[in-house]
Amino acid sequence: MANGEILAPVSGSVWKIECTEGQAVSEGDTLMILESMKMEIPVEAPVSGTIASLTVKEGDPVEEDAVLGVVTT
């Protein structure tokens, strides 16, 4: 994923955000955790880079494939 968009892998709600804007991350790092069907689903960094923005906060409902933020390389 060259554009670095952080996408919701499933529909659910944002349970925990484990990164902050400006933070350096590596591809595959867990950035946040969604809750879906009583399961915790990790959201991973699509690429290595810096978190440019986060567009959700804890508790927000999200649809599958929604953009949760952007990682710039």
Partner: peptide, 9 residues
């Protein structure tokens, strides 16, 4: 993950 509550692909 070890916890049964945690999902993965």
């Amino acid at each position: 993950p070890e916890s049964r509550r945690q999902g993965y692909d």
